[in-house]
Each structure stands twice: as structure tokens, then as C-alpha cells.
């Protein structure tokens, strides 16, 4: 048989099992929801300790990043993530995991070019585009006359 790309593509789609979407979504919902609930508790804790809303939000981010980093270092995050999928990728704990895991992995290439450089191998794009988007938003605000001071 002479194979052409289109008919092979159809055949392989037929033969490749799809991801179990409803189950994946349910697990992502439960794990993601649970992490956010922990975040809510952490935020309440910091407010109870007397931090005002903005500071409490920053303290919550730092705490959640710490928890994500700790679980990564204890090899637990990868085990949770196998089931949770987006439920562990999307929360800020996943951002921490994406920074800590390459740092650990590339320690064998040294502290500067290994740990230091590879730290951002996954999270770098998030910072690059997130920060760029925020600057663009700031410039737009300026143009619209939202600027105060200078």
C-alpha cells in the first residue's frame, strides 16, 4: 500500500487513545480547587496576623511559592501533578515548581550555568510576556492620560 499523509493521519487518530478528558478535568478541578482553598486559608492567616490586604496578598504568594518549592524538593509535586495535570500547573505553586525543578535538575552542570541559567528555562517565558504585557498596559494608561506624577 502506498501511504499518504492524510490517510495515515486519519488512521493514527483512530488508533491513538485520547486523553480521558472528563476524568482529567475532574482531577484538575479538585486539585486546583484544593490548592486555591489552601491559598485562601494562608491569606486569612496573614490578615489575621495584621497585614493589610495588599501586603497579605504578597505574603500569600510568597507562602504558596514556598509550599510549591518545598513539595518539589521533597519529590511530592511531581507525584501530585501526574494526576492533577492543570490542577498543579496553573496555580502559583506550579510556577514555583517550574523554577525549582530545573534548578535541581541542572545542578550537575554547576551553580552558575546549571542552577542559575536553567532556573528560567520553563518559567522565563511567563516572566518575559507577563512583564512585557504589564509595561504595554502601563504605556496605554499613560497615553489615555491616566498618569499622575511626572
Amino acid at each position: 500500500m502506498k501511504l499518504d499523509k492524510q490517510s495515515y493521519q486519519r488512521l493514527l487518530e483512530q488508533k491513538s487513545p485520547p486523553s480521558p478528558l472528563p476524568l482529567d478535568c475532574l482531577k484538575a478541578f479538585l486539585f486546583g480547587g484544593a490548592i486555591c482553598t489552601v491559598g485562601e486559608a494562608v491569606s486569612n492567616f496573614w490578615q489575621w496576623r495584621g497585614l493589610e490586604t495588599t501586603d497579605a496578598a504578597a505574603a500569600t504568594s510568597i507562602t504558596m511559592v514556598f509550599l510549591g518549592a518545598l513539595l518539589t524538593c521533597l519529590h511530592l509535586y511531581e507525584k501530585l501533578a501526574k494526576h492533577a495535570g492543570a490542577g498543579t500547573i496553573v496555580p502559583i505553586t506550579g510556577f514555583a515548581n517550574s523554577i525549582v525543578s530545573p534548578a535541581m535538575e541542572f545542578k550537575s552542570e554547576g551553580l552558575v550555568l546549571g542552577v542559575g541559567a536553567k532556573l528560567f528555562v520553563i518559567a522565563g517565558p511567563v516572566l518575559a510576556y507577563g512583564i512585557s504585557a504589564s509595561v504595554i498596559y502601563g504605556l496605554v494608561l499613560m497615553l489615555l492620560g491616566g498618569g499622575g506624577g511626572a
Binding site: S61, I62, V65, A69, C73, I92, V100, A103, M104, V115
Partner: peptide, 14 residues
């Protein structure tokens, strides 16, 4: 806060 924490904990835990 989040960015600095991720970098510092990344280095530390590595």
C-alpha cells in the same frame, strides 16, 4: 514577592 520567592527558593532548594 512571588518572583523573588520563586528565584530564592529555586536556588536554595537546588
Amino acid at each position: 514577592g512571588g518572583i523573588a520567592a520563586a528565584i530564592v527558593f529555586g536556588c536554595l532548594f537546588a
